[in-house]
Design a protein around this nucleic acid. Structure first.
Lengths: 332, 332
DNA sequence: CTGAAAGCGCTAACAA
DNA sequence: TTGTTAGCGCTTTCAG
């Protein structure tokens, strides 16, 4: 078991003081050439690496990494959504030579993300407290996929409401009148907004809102099945479905065909996410594409600005989505 | 700009010494009930969160996170391979309530992964030095996708050589004799082993190795195109291709059809990775599936063992792959 | 059960 | 240009 070599060992070997060693580590100009060389030699010999935690502690500098806090939910790592986000953020971190500190927050323990350059919160649901803590410490942070009005923090999200409205109007324009909505987890702002958008579209087009046609889920494929069964067995079956996520939509398509019905002949369906899986379903899925990767990149870029300039003006950015028309909807 | 609240503030507010505060933070039993309550109240009031860097420094404890070092290569975050690995490791970290510290190592700067519980190295190519540094510090680490013989470190990889051999023999059994190989980046052990396996298969079946039939690339789609063009324009064109990655194979399929040829009629092709994209190509791609997610999980599990038990016996694990037969190869 | 004091490895004034 | 000396925020003996 080797012990850690510290700056002191180096100093001793080089025959200088620890401050001199510290100086060469930090590339301070004011070190004599002779000493610098001696120190560098000693560092190499010992294989010394400064402890970045100690460096941080002593200097107050933040460590060059951004934190990404994702709520722990069923299959965070399986979800297309989360993976795309990680990807976008990862790319941006890489470009900026930042490390990425991924923290999947379970219930209570508000992790330890202080002392990072900044942190990104993906979706605020279980982790609102965590956000508040970081925010209170005045650590740069940006929230994605959630517009938080009551906290002066930067937010980048997609305009879920407008996107949902657009999707449902697409269905309406196709002639559908009986349109159901399978929601996501309504603890989630995105799901709530999607639901609002659904209602907006109906209202605007003078279609009444049938609460039977709104089925809540937690985004799981499991509950999607349940929702599908309920909806398909209604006496007044909807002719179209707007589903809050592609993975649920796909699951539902399975149920539909198992029930002996056909998409889009008997029932039209539009999803949300533009999950590539949807492309290769028996009938390719019409869906709403969110600019997930871009969001990730914007978040990191914004964080950089926050770290470097500490602007006091916060931004709440809402990005548009795009509806991707494929084969799962038909004209009535 | 709020200043950080420290243990001292808490102590003052609670009217006790900082050691007492420290004790309640660390759940030491020996704190009087009255004091404990006072301290907890103060902590809540101040919203105090212990600085984990300082905790680490003072206690010598490692921080509950595993590092993942990935060499910086073109599109690390776009590659299916890397993403699967991250996913597997992410899942395992989540299960173990560990954070994941992702470090994409560029050239020189050997990051700062000491003081983590352990670190996983994905592919050793530019970062051999980095590995040695961590290893020398006696920090638990495991290398994946690379069996390193000359360092007593845990390794988990896929048996690329056997897998490649199997893939090529599959082609041979189909009656192919003129089989070319588009390699990956030969700086990579995986690519080298794949090449060896290719040769093994040929040798074992008394087919001569035609060096013209071996085209090196760096795994990029770009170079894959070049390789395809070269191979397709040979007077003695191969009838089958074994390509070191699915994404290259897919690219090559594109070139093939652009040249007016057909897969598998004119040319058979097998890839490597089991990238889902291959499933949905015009002709679905026969490929080799690596247990990437499992590798990630095994790596984390192994790390846990290393951290907890510090066994001195290292393991070099080589996992089998599985060939996934689809439609891109034909019988001669 | 509790407090005082000595560090953990490093940086940052301040002197020299 | 260098060395000395305080700390950074916390844990951990060691007394009491």
């Amino acid at each position: 078991m080797k012990k850690k070599i510290s700056i002191e060992n180096v100093a001793k070997l080089a025959g200088v003081s620890i401050s001199t060693v510290s100086r060469v580590i930090n590339k301070s100009l004011s070190v004599g050439k002779a000493n610098r060389i001696k120190v560098e030699k000693a560092i190499k010999e010992l294989g010394f690496k400064p402890d970045f935690l100690a460096q941080h502690l002593a200097s107050g500098r933040s460590i060059p990494a951004v934190g990404l806090v994702i709520p722990r939910y069923e299959g965070a790592f399986y979800s297309f959504y989360a993976l795309q986000l990680i990807r976008g953020i990862g790319i941006a971190c890489d470009n900026n030579k930042l490390d990425l500190f991924l923290h999947i927050t379970g219930s209570l323990n508000l992790g330890n993300m202080s002392s990072l350059s900044g942190v990104i919160f993906a979706d605020i649901i279980g982790n609102r407290k965590h956000l508040e803590a970081i925010f209170a410490m005045n650590i740069p942070c940006v929230v994605i996929n959630n517009i938080i009005e009551d906290l002066d923090v930067d937010c980048i999200a997609v305009d879920n409401q407008a996107a949902a409205k657009e999707a449902v109007e697409y269905l309406i324009n196709l002639g559908h009148k009986k349109i159901a909505h399978v929601t996501g987890d309504l603890n989630t702002q995105a799901a709530r907004m999607r639901l609002e958008g659904y209602k907006d579209a109906l209202n605007k087009n003078n279609l009444s809102i049938n609460s039977e046609y709104i089925v809540e889920t937690d985004y799981s494929r499991q509950e999607a099945r349940g929702a599908a069964e309920k909806l398909l067995n209604m006496e007044d079956r909807p002719t179209a479905l707007f589903v809050a996520s592609d993975s649920m939509a796909l699951e539902i398509m399975g149920v539909i065909s198992k029930e002996g019905l056909e998409v889009p002949k008997d029932i039209s369906i539009v999803g949300f996410d533009d999950n590539p899986e949807g492309l290769y379903a028996p009938v390719s899925l019409t869906t709403v594409k969110q600019p997930l990767i871009e969001i990730g990149q914007m978040a990191v870029d914004r964080l950089k600005v926050l770290v470097e300039k500490r602007p006091d003006k916060k931004e709440k950015i809402s990005l548009p989505c795009e509806i991707v028309v494929r084969d799962s909807c038909r004209h009535m």
